[in-house]
Design a binder for these strands. Structure first.
Lengths: 186, 186
DNA sequence: CTTGACAAACCGTCCAGACGGTATCTTAAT
DNA sequence: ATTAAGATACCGTCTGGACGGTTTGTCAAG
């Protein structure tokens, strides 16, 4: 009967809040920090409330994954529309996303979260599927060795960002980007 | 008084066995599969025995990490000795290691294990340190944008291998390697 | 008044680590 | 060469807590 019970019901907002909190927790405490108790409490919802929206923990992680790939897909699609050259178009859009991740607000969230997600075998499989689907869709334009290499390099940079292992200054970063774009065109 | 109590004591071997089993378990069952019970049982040692060698779980993971980076360091050092060109020497050795990982016996172990390790914040920090140390040591020869990019690309390939997300055939692989070696020289 | 959106208490399991013990090894004085 | 005295390498049990999930109840909106 306390608090949230009496507030205006807003299921969609609560659902969003739960996903957001789950992402933040995985950022701050690693994958192990994402427990039903912690997430629900941090979101100001009871555990029962959380389990109402996501019937089990895997569903919560799946929700996170969907959120992530959904945003990524939309950004890529948008980026591709403004690229006149067909060859390597998807690769360049992918590059844009990765290079943009440093500045974006929710970039850090994505990053550490992703590592956490990838440590879950089931979610690894889903990521595999995502990659396979896109490789398939753009096999005509983005399957050259140059494109593949460019995307690998972007992944490496992305990994370095996640781990904060390298410290790449902005000029170098831009030079690398230019180099990779050139690669995607050959 | 049972069995292992009476066998010849062989601390170093048992220690090695424990690390090996831990790596195998993380490969087969993901990070969550590495529990003290599972590791000790699979290694034919009691949990008490395990905790004798590694006072807590973190120490076990640290041991794994040391094992990994130790082997990596030795391989890199060896590879560097057979490279006459100074510029980018470390980068090329690093490339060799990454490209060799597909064929090596314990490669799979390394790979999935590494993902598990990277999801642990403390171990991420140690990896950060490893990178920083090496970047520092070879700042004179391997800090060019080309070298950095080559290493990033290798990391991307390595990540793809881990996730089995891409399927890169051997010819493409070799072409990529040649390309990256050229990058390390410029 | 039915249904969806929660709350709150509870359960079974699993897991990290503590603890007290026992067997084997090493060392050094005899 | 013996052997006592410690150090080292284990074993087996227990516990406290965390965690995923269930169940039952309550309130509010349509």
């Amino acid at each position: 009967m306390s608090l949230a019970h009496h507030r205006r019901k807003q299921p969609e907002l609560v659902r969003q809040q739960l996903l957001e909190v789950a992402a933040r927790l995985s950022l701050e405490q690693g994958a192990a920090g994402v427990t039903l108790d912690a997430v629900s409490q941090a979101a100001g919802v009871s555990k029962g409330g959380l389990l109402h929206h996501f019937p089990n923990k895997m569903a919560l992680l799946d929700g996170l994954f969907d959120d992530l790939t959904g945003k990524l897909d939309r950004t890529i699609e948008q980026e591709m529309r403004s690229d006149p050259v067909a060859h390597g178009r998807f690769t360049r859009a992918y590059l844009s996303c990765v290079f943009a991740m440093t500045d974006e607000t929710d970039a850090q969230g994505w990053q550490v979260l992703t590592i956490a997600l990838l440590s879950e075998p089931q979610l690894r499989a889903r990521w595999r599927l995502w990659v396979a689907d896109h490789a398939d869709e753009f096999v005509g334009t983005d399957s050259s060795a140059g494109c593949l290499l460019a995307r690998f390099a972007a992944d490496g940079l992305w990994l370095a960002d996640i781990l904060k292992s390298h410290d790449v200054d902005q000029p170098t970063r831009q030079a690398m980007r230019a180099h990779l774009i050139a690669l995607s065109l050959q």
